[in-house]
Every structure is written in C-alpha cells, then in structure tokens.
Amino acid sequence: MTRRSLAPLIGIVVFLAAWEGFVRAFHVRKFILRAPSSAVNYLWRFRGDYLHASWVTVQHSILGLLFALMIALVIGALLASNRFAERATQPILLLIQVVPWIAYVSSVVVWLGSGTAPALFMVTLVCVPAFVFATVDGMRSVEPATLELMSSVDASRSEVLWRVRLPSAAPTLFTTARFNVGLALAIAYYVEGANFANEGIGAIGRSAASSSDPFAADRLWASIFSIAVVGIVALLLLSLLERTVLHWHAAQRTERR
C-alpha cells in the first residue's frame, strides 16, 4: 500500500480513536454521542437487519439519482438549444433548489402514501435542478471551432448532441453527482423515517430517535454508521467511474500525477 492511499485510513482511525477516547473520558450521555466501538459492535450483531435496510436506502437514493439524471439530460438538452425555454424554466428549477425539501416532504408523503414512492419522488425531484444546470453549462462549454467544424459537413442537431455536446457535459455532471449523492442520501433517510413503511435505514433511525428503550441509542448510532458507509461506498464508486470515463479530462490527469 502506498503512502498516499494510507493517509485517509490513518485520518479515519485517528478520528475514531479520538471520538472513542472523548466519550469514555467524559462519560458523554449515550444519546448525544455513542462511542464508535459500541455502535459498531451493535451494528455487527444485527448486521442482517442493517444490511437489508441499507439495501433499501441504496435503492431509494441511487434509483432516485438515476431518474433525476435521465430527466435532467432530457430537459438540459432542450434548454441548451433554446434560450427562451431556459429562461422560462430557470425560476422553477431554482424554486425546487432553494425551498427546503424538508418543508413540504410531509405533504408528499400524505399524497404518495407510504413505501418507496415518496422516497423516490423526493430524491428525484430535488436532485433534478443541479443536474439540469450542469447539463446546460457542460453542453454550452463546447469549443466554437468544434461546432463550426460539425456544421461544415452539415452534421444534424442530434449528431452534434450525441457526439459533441453530451460528452462535453460529462465533467460537470460528475461534479454535480458527487454533490447530489449526499443530498439523495439525506432525503432517502428522512423520507424513510417519515413515511410509516418501516423500511430502510431512515426508518430504523427514526424509530430509535423516538424510543426510550435501553438500546435505542445503539440503534440510532448504528443507523448513522450504516448511512455513512453507504455514502462512502457510493462516492468511491463514483470516483472510480469518473476516472475511467473521464481519463481524458484535465482534472483527472492532474489527480493521477
């Protein structure tokens, strides 16, 4: 293992050790902060339950992200070629982005009922705007010389879209995806807790937070650890994909050096 890949591991170990030491030394109340050792211990004991719950949460957040990406690509492609449509759509997208999703999430749960539907809907809805902005910006970042070249042989709009504009949007889309992963997990976690379906990490967290049994704190902190692992794995996979897909991009090249 190289020194470079060792560094983040050392960082995490030091952080967890400091946390553990702090909780033990100051006898912090269970609910406020659980020592990592007991949370991990509990997590391991009920690993089947947490694995299943994590899988549910992964489906909510990752599927929602993929839906959002697909919708955003279609909207983005339309907006990139039409300034008027872009100006008309921008306020709606900005509204979705600035109004805290947590403010209207209970209405959506009432509307869509319990289970997967509200979680998927919320993740998709809230992740769309950033993806749309990334698509439009990326598609517009094409060099004018390249567009000129394409029109010198009468390339059709769809040929330009597929061969030039969409690939140009890939770098901004990856950056946005990284930001959206955290958002998607937060939304999935919250909606799972609020939609009375008892599925997903969020449901465990929510029931633990409102319970007073002696293991509630362990359950809560085990759910926090689970969602952290899901998030880290998602980000790692995303960087791996980015490195393969964007090996030609300047940002990836400097990173590898």
Partner: peptide, 19 residues
C-alpha cells in the same frame, strides 16, 4: 457543397475532441 461534404474545413484551432 456543405450538405454533400464537398468542403474540408481546417480551423485555426484544431478543435479535436479530447475524449
């Protein structure tokens, strides 16, 4: 001429696609 690809354009910037 353009529609029948009878013109080969060489722009000032090479305009190569990086991917």
């Amino acid at each position: 001429a353009r529609a029948y690809k009878r013109v080969g354009l060489v722009p000032q910037q090479p305009g190569l696609l990086p991917w």
